[in-house]
Write a protein that binds this DNA or RNA. Structure first.
Lengths: 184, 184
DNA sequence: AGCAGAGTAGACAGGTCTGTCTGGTATCGT
DNA sequence: ACGATACCAGACAGACCTGTCTACTCTGCT
């Protein structure tokens, strides 16, 4: 059956594209380079991804499901502990080598049209993220989970931009204090 | 004297590039299109800007000086009022048509190398921005202006990303509440 | 008068981009 | 055995990219 076992070539392409897109940006990386580094024929690439935009869409979707998986492993403790673990994880990740900011924010910067499928995939991920915050806040008994979720999203976006562009130690400290104030 | 009166062609190029870079991204806009829309010959373009990166650098620098000018006009009231006016201005601007996020954040997404001149110009603007917050907080008598400036920068970055990618009304409300909490 | 600087139009080079196509090989289920 | 599917290598088309170059005009200073 087609699709029953994930294609090795497809996986290699997506992994290579993920690495290059994140590190260098979408428009800066060409198909030729991706297929060369993935060790895949051009015809094979276009067999799995009808166009480059489809690959970008798959890249965004994969990043989204990856983040959902990571969050799922953090749901052990209380809602508040989960939220703190999520932000602690983002800080650790942001302070690590090779950090280049948020793949969604960075990719959105290269796709101006909000109606583009790539942008819609990004918007969907952001809705999931905001709703995750809202649900955790509500489960924690927060009096205004909706509004506070929006504030946490502000904090998250500031975090991913700051770790990419500013001094990581200062950002980490600011996030820690801001999170403490928001969670009360 | 060379440079005593700003070149009309140079100005047209920079204005056109600013409009196109902001709306569509740097790598998506080619030199040919810029010179066509600016009504300038290619030789003239390369006379004023030795390379495209020099134009991008000029674009970033111009955005920075433009923001400094805007802030300078807001220093009428108290430091706290100035801070509130700055964030209110960003909210109004972010909710307006044609908003495409922060030109510095968006451009940084397309320049991965932190050592690149464009990235350094962006970093310089961010230092100015953070120091502006710190100085205003200190003038307002805030007990921890340094740390709080970092938090305001988090808030600012969340603001510019949020207005670009999410529901403007929700972002505005979240910014309003977060700012009130930070300023106490 | 004459030169320097800024401007125009547009051809050109050399490279890269996405996407198509040809042609051949290997694996697997039926 | 056979057909479908996945894979490989690589040529090719047509567009677009940055940057160079030729050749010419106009203006202002000295």
């Amino acid at each position: 059956m087609k699709g029953s076992r994930p294609s090795s070539a497809r996986t290699r392409v997506l992994e290579t594209a993920t690495r290059l897109f994140y590190a260098e940006g979408v428009h800066s990386v060409g198909i030729d380079r991706i297929i060369a580094e993935a060790g895949v024929a051009k015809a094979t690439f276009y067999h799995h991804f009808p166009s480059k935009d489809d690959l970008v869409r798959a890249y965004v979707d994969e990043q989204s499901s990856l983040q959902r998986t990571v969050v799922a492993t953090m749901r052990a403790g209380s809602p508040r502990e989960t939220l703190q673990a999520i932000f602690a994880f983002m800080c650790d990740f942001g302070a690590g080598p090779g950090y280049r900011g948020c793949p969604f924010v960075n990719t959105a910067a290269e796709y101006p049209d909000p109606a583009h499928p790539v942008r819609q995939a990004i918007a969907e991920h952001r809705r999931w993220n905001r709703d995750l915050y809202r649900d955790l806040l509500a489960a924690d008994g927060h009096p205004d989970a909706e509004r506070t979720a929006d504030i946490l999203l502000l904090l998250r976006d500031g975090l991913v931009v700051g770790f990419d562009l500013d001094d990581p130690a200062a950002v980490r400290a600011a996030v820690h204090e801001a999170l403490a104030r928001v969670l009360g």
